[in-house]
Design a protein around this nucleic acid. Structure first.
Lengths: 353, 353
DNA sequence: ATGAAAGCGCTAACAT
DNA sequence: ATGTTAGCGCTTTCAT
């Protein structure tokens, strides 16, 4: 293909308005030291000619690229896409992130990076060198990857770490995992449950621990036992099935189970069905994530709603603020989720003993 | 934030390898006129220094941007995201498009553009001027928007039109809508259905017409009637409900209905339930799209699977080929979908009459 | 087969 | 408050 040069450049605008390139540049970037009338004149030329700055050129001259890079785990994301289970984490990130970016004239570029890989660093370096983004959004498990965090910190690129709350580099944001687990537990306690089991997520994600903390904390408040009621899964359906069996096969099984992912909750529902346990009559189930699928099960699942879009949106805001010279917040930003009650939770059956 | 310049540039590589910038450039772009040993030496330096070309600089000097812009309808996409019905069209596009882009060293940028808007053109122009993509992927209804198609054609940017098959500018790709409708119809005919209703999609999408053609064509082959069996919807649940009632309230209602979207099929299922019609005993239903939700209904819906990922992947391939000097195919590329039989279709009840 | 020079569109730094 | 100059990192001419 032939050379495709910019049709309308800053030069054209400058010539049309009869000013220097610099003045046009100042107007574009909303910088000081331009008289209002001058600004107006330049803006008129911009509008007239339909001029839009080339982000390549802007980036070249050392300024912003107006690009924010959102990075997700490759393996897991592709598995979700191919699995077609309706997991809409990526969609929600785009919803929150892209729209917020657009508000500020930024663009979001979505990338996949392997975590389990000796060349994570090379991959990320390449993406940064190629795109030179003004900011990066990390999601679990990348958010806690010291290689990635270290690299970004060293390169002085503002970056958000969704699902992290330690004070290391970057802007930490959580979806209030502990609080959500507390609310889920409270919901069950309020219904009258005493034995509430918990299926944890993969320990690779620090949020898995926080959710356990929330459950344990709330149980402690009520003086309820947690011993033998915690099983570790890894977010997958298969791990959820194993965990659910372990909980329900015990001598004194729980009357309710909180699963740290929708897939594990689905598995729990299936295990209950196998065992002939009525849900919610004999077993209540609460899931985490609230992906679309949980509304279509029988019964529909009560779920912790993860505010993914809102969190992505906040991440963008904070990155842009940081990039504009503000400093990052010292405290992690906590975006609170919700609990959506559906048919899978009810008062426990009365036990005659 | 301080100036963030490229840490390793072509200069560093040239110096390290002891060659000119030009030679390095040739190696990067895999151009001729470099001795193998020279190439090897340069490549060694590139690897050693971890050099990655800056896309901005490449674009600046008039070459490729390695960016492919995928454009979806803003209103509809945001509605899908917010609706959280598990519609995974975007995910499938990313799956097919991003991975194929990555194979060629390209990146896919996803953008939302309003169709119903007097400033479509301005929006698109801005995106192109800002990003200077090497190619654009259009999806319905943009694919048939003459303003957009004209603009892209005029700017000589290679672009794919998913869901279009006319010979206008650009690379046309369809998901074989007509063939899919034929297969769906055939599936029902083979089960013994004679009266097969069809709920069409919005006429704004030309694929709506092709699906009707497929259904009518296959019905004609069998000598089956179509009069009074076609109702127009607009892909939404609400329109599907209206259409289904219209079909089922008639004197001689169909024993099977093909709906041109999952949402309309879902609505049809609900209407059947209201009317006390057993599915599939008294009414068979086939849907289009095969989004995740159709597996969770009772019964699960037999659906036409739209090969969205595959189509996006092909679009990327064709764009890159075109961009590399090949010319666009003269015939529309047709990516064939599949029919996934599930519980919503069965032989019709025997009518005693 | 290789290199040198010019320039892409824009902004930072330095004038004025 | 505005203009001028010198690059940014790379690819294109155009030499050699």
């Amino acid at each position: 293909m032939g050379r495709r040069r910019q049709s309308v450049t800053i030069k054209h605008v400058a010539a049309d308005a009869g000013v220097s390139l610099q003045t046009v540049s100042r107007v574009i970037n909303d910088e000081p030291n331009v008289r209002p009338e001058m600004k107006e004149r330049v803006q008129a030329s911009i509008d007239k000619l339909g001029y839009v700055p080339s982000i390549a050129a802007q980036r070249m001259s050392g300024s912003r690229s107006y690009l924010i890079l959102a990075i997700n785990d490759r393996e897991r994301t592709i598995a979700d896409w191919q699995g077609r289970q309706g997991v809409d984490w990526v969609d929600q990130m785009l919803l929150g992130g892209m729209l917020k970016c657009a508000e500020y004239g930024y663009r979001m570029i979505f990338e996949l990076v392997d975590t389990h890989n000796d060349h994570v660093e090379r991959e990320l370096r390449a993406a940064i060198a190629a795109l030179q983004p003004d900011g990066v959004i990390l999601t679990p498990p990348h958010s806690d990857n010291p290689l990635i965090v270290g690299l970004l910190d060293q390169q002085k690129i503002p970056f958000a770490r969704i699902g992290s709350r330690d004070g290391a580099a970057g802007i930490a944001l959580t979806m209030d995992d502990e609080g959500s687990a507390r609310r889920a537990t409270r919901h069950l306690v309020d219904l009258g449950h005493k034995r509430i089991g918990f299926i944890a997520g993969s320990p690779e994600y620090s949020l898995s621990r926080w959710r356990i903390d929330g459950w344990e904390g709330e149980m402690a408040v009520e003086g309820l036992p947690t011993a033998g009621l915690l099983v570790e899964g890894d977010f997958t359906y298969a791990s959820g099935a194993v965990a659910a069996r372990q909980l329900l096969d015990g001598a004194n099984p729980p009357t309710a189970i909180i699963a740290s992912s929708d897939q594990m909750a689905l598995a729990t529902l299936e295990v209950a069905r196998e065992k002939g346990l009525d849900v919610p009559g004999q077993l209540s189930i609460v899931s985490f994530d609230n992906t679309p699928v949980v509304r279509f099960t029988q019964p529909a699942l009560t779920a912790v709603d993860q505010p993914v879009a809102e969190t992505a949106s906040r991440a963008v805001e904070l990155i842009i603020a940081a990039q504009r010279g503000g400093q990052r917040p010292t405290e992690p930003t906590r975006v609170q989720g919700g609990l959506v009650p559906r048919g899978s939770t009810a008062a426990p059956a009365v036990v005659h003993g």
